[in-house]
Amino acid sequence: HNLTITQGKLFFHYNPKLCLSEIHKMEEVSGTKGRQERNDIALKTNGDQASCENELLKFSYIRTSFDKILLRWEPYWPPDFRDLLGFMLFYKEAPYQNVTEFDGQDACGSNSWTVVDIDPPLRSNDPKSQNHPGWLMRGLKPWTQYAIFVKTLVTFSDERRTYGAKSDIIYVQTDATNPSVPLDPISVSNSSSQIILKWKPPSDPNGNITHYLVFWERQAEDSELFELDYCLKGLKLPSRTWSPPFESEDSQKHNQSEYEDSAGECCSCPKTDSQILKELEESSFRKTFEDYLHNVVFVPRKTSSGTGAEDPRPSRKRRSLGDVGNVTVAVPTVAAFPNTSSTSVPTSPEEHRPFEKVVNKESLVISGLRHFTGYRIELQACNQDTPEERCSVAAYVSARTMPEAKADDIVGPVTHEIFENNVVHLMWQEPKEPNGLIVLYEVSYRRYGDEELHLCVSRKHFALERGCRLRGLSPGNYSVRIRATSLAGNGSWTEPTYFYVTDYLDVPSNIA
């Protein structure tokens, strides 16, 4: 807008934040220059609390790290170098490059900038070799853009010569660093050979998330399962459950009422301010606690030095998902009996873990797994792929695949051998790939016309006998059925096997 004052003059007093240069501009645009008398524009009460600059400061050096910015700028000295009290560095987070010096300023003089007072450097006698002032900004957020400017702080001049310097606002972004852990990993099994893994992005990506790394490792069953005799009275049979499938998407929606109208769909109840505040506090606490764990609990591995020492970490090797089922080394339970199943799973520490690289999504279907087997899954978020990966501390989750139908069934015939004193040795093959492992066998036998009897055969007993022995049988026709019990439950009964026990007292003698 054009402003013209045809008559009258300007009068400025007691404006401590208004620089004289701005008042002189007002004289020019209003056409009143030359009308004012000496005392109409006070030299001592206008701009006496402001830094009124008329020179431009330029930054000469900028260096960044993930949490620091090192700045240096060209030296500046007023005509009387004693008038320079120091520099004021202003900075704040700036997602967009549209910041002005006066953003967030209120009537009390406060604003949204963080201000650092910096002492002037030592003055050199040689004007050509003056030290460049600077400042190291610490405690910054990774991968965050900051708006920065600097200006001088000078003393009051009796001659009211307006001098000083100020830089333009520059924008500097800190470097990326390792992201925080992925949030809320959930693993479920939808079949006997697959596990579905879902997660949420890290709360602090500290860069642009480029991919996720998912490692999985087959877990050995508890050692007590191999040692305890679950045929003993009072000892509860062990059981394991597989990871249940995901709930429906509708039930997972946030901010939804727990109660549904019987007449149909209901609208979600909005969260109160107290609920939102509580969630923010919980989120802040979780982030602080995660940072504490990362800094205190997890110790970084030592990389190899120039002395030739090897990095103890196993090298990563990509495998196809079809090879995942046989990740671990199978060892027989008892070496003397080769027909026992290889369900003991000690994992070799030198073995390469299978892994998958996930790009542009937060889910993965891990296939080719062994049925009813526990897996430990390790999830890392990465925001750099080359020249070397920059990934987060791992988040861990466990899951067990679903049982395989008929995996616990005894394959092959049940054979028998009759000894003296009416002892019958029953023999059968253990299931080759049971659900988890076989903890015991149930032997059901009966003599024709009598009630059915049951015998429990422990895992250890089966390994020693290759089956079991029935003792003290009365003469007669017998039928026997056997079924295995694994961590997933009972298998199917075998087809009945028949044998006849004679009275050993009636056996004919070869003595003449």
Rank of each mutant, 00 (worst) to 15 (best):
S203E: 09
D204P: 03
D204M: 01
N206T: 05
N206A: 04
G207S: 02
I209N: 06
H211Y: 15
H211C: 01
H211D: 01
H211M: 05
L213S: 15
F215T: 12
E217Q: 15
R218K: 07
A220C: 15
E221D: 04
D222A: 05
D222M: 08
S223H: 12
S223G: 02
S223C: 12
E224Y: 12
L225E: 06
E227V: 08
E227N: 11
L228A: 15
Y230I: 07
Y230R: 07
Y230Q: 15
C231M: 01
K233Y: 12
G234I: 15
G234S: 12
L235Y: 06
K236E: 09
L237F: 05
P238G: 04
S239E: 12
W242K: 08
W242C: 01
E249W: 09
E249K: 14
S251T: 10
S251E: 14
Q252T: 15
N255G: 07
Q256I: 09
Q256L: 08
Q256V: 13
E260C: 11
D261F: 13
D261M: 04
S262Y: 07
A263Q: 13
A263D: 12
E265S: 09
E265D: 12
C267G: 07
C267E: 05
C269T: 13
C269W: 10
P270S: 06
K271S: 03
T272R: 09
D273E: 12
D273R: 11
S274H: 05
Q275V: 10
L277Q: 02
L277W: 10
K278W: 10
E279F: 12
L280E: 01
L280A: 01
S283E: 12
S284D: 04
S284F: 09
S284M: 14
R286V: 11
F289L: 07
E290G: 11
D291Y: 13
H294T: 02
N295R: 14
N295H: 03
V296T: 11
P300N: 04
R301L: 10
K302A: 07
T303H: 07
S305H: 02
A309D: 15
E310Y: 15
D311C: 04
P312M: 12
P312V: 04
S315K: 04
R316C: 01
R316T: 12
R318N: 04
S320T: 09
G322F: 02
D323F: 15
D323V: 06
V324A: 08
V324Q: 05
G325Q: 15
G325T: 13
V331Q: 14
P332Q: 13
P332D: 08
T333N: 12
T333M: 13
F337N: 15
P338V: 08
N339W: 11
T340D: 08
T340E: 14
S341D: 13
S341T: 05
S341R: 07
S341M: 08
T343A: 14
T347E: 13
P349R: 07
P349K: 04
E350L: 12
R353E: 06
P354C: 10
E356A: 12
E356F: 06
E356Y: 09
K361R: 03
E362G: 03
E362W: 13
I366A: 03
S367W: 09
F372C: 11
G374T: 11
G374Q: 12
Y375F: 13
E378K: 08
L379V: 06
Q380D: 11
Q380W: 10
Q380T: 14
A381G: 03
C382F: 01
D385I: 08
P387Y: 09
E388G: 15
E389C: 08
R390N: 12
R390V: 05
R390F: 05
C391L: 05
C391S: 02
S392D: 01
S392L: 01
A394W: 12
A395N: 05
Y396M: 12
V397F: 10
S398D: 08
S398E: 08
A399N: 07
A399T: 09
P403H: 05
P403I: 11
P403T: 08
K406E: 08
A407G: 01
A407Q: 14
D408S: 02
P413T: 00
T415F: 06
H416W: 06
H416F: 09
H416S: 12
E417Y: 03
I418F: 09
F419R: 12
F419T: 11
E420W: 15
V423W: 09
V424M: 10
H425I: 13
H425A: 12
H425Q: 10
M427S: 11
M427K: 13
Q429S: 12
E433S: 14
P434W: 01
N435T: 00
N435M: 00
G436S: 15
G436Y: 02
L437R: 10
L437E: 15
V439D: 05
V439I: 09
Y441Q: 01
V443N: 00
S444N: 00
S444L: 04
Y445P: 01
Y445M: 13
Y445L: 08
R446H: 05
R447K: 07
R447A: 05
Y448L: 07
H454G: 13
C456I: 15
C456R: 02
C456S: 02
C456E: 02
V457R: 14
R459F: 12
K460G: 04
K460C: 14
K460S: 11
H461P: 04
F462T: 03
A463W: 11
A463S: 09
L464M: 10
L464R: 08
R466Q: 02
G467N: 02
C468K: 08
R469A: 03
R471L: 05
R471G: 04
L473A: 03
S474L: 09
P475A: 10
P475V: 08
P475R: 08
G476L: 00
G476F: 00
N477G: 14
Y478A: 00
Y478C: 00
S479H: 14
S479T: 10
V480R: 01
V480H: 01
R481K: 14
R481D: 00
I482Q: 01
I482H: 00
R483G: 01
R483V: 02
R483K: 13
A484N: 00
A484E: 09
A484T: 12
T485A: 15
S486I: 00
L487R: 06
L487A: 13
L487C: 10
A488Y: 10
A488L: 03
A488T: 03
G491Q: 15
W493Y: 13
T494W: 00
E495R: 06
P496S: 05
T497C: 15
Y500N: 12
Y500C: 15
Y500G: 07
D503L: 06
Y504R: 10
Y504N: 04
D506M: 13
D506F: 15
S509C: 02
S509F: 08
N510A: 14
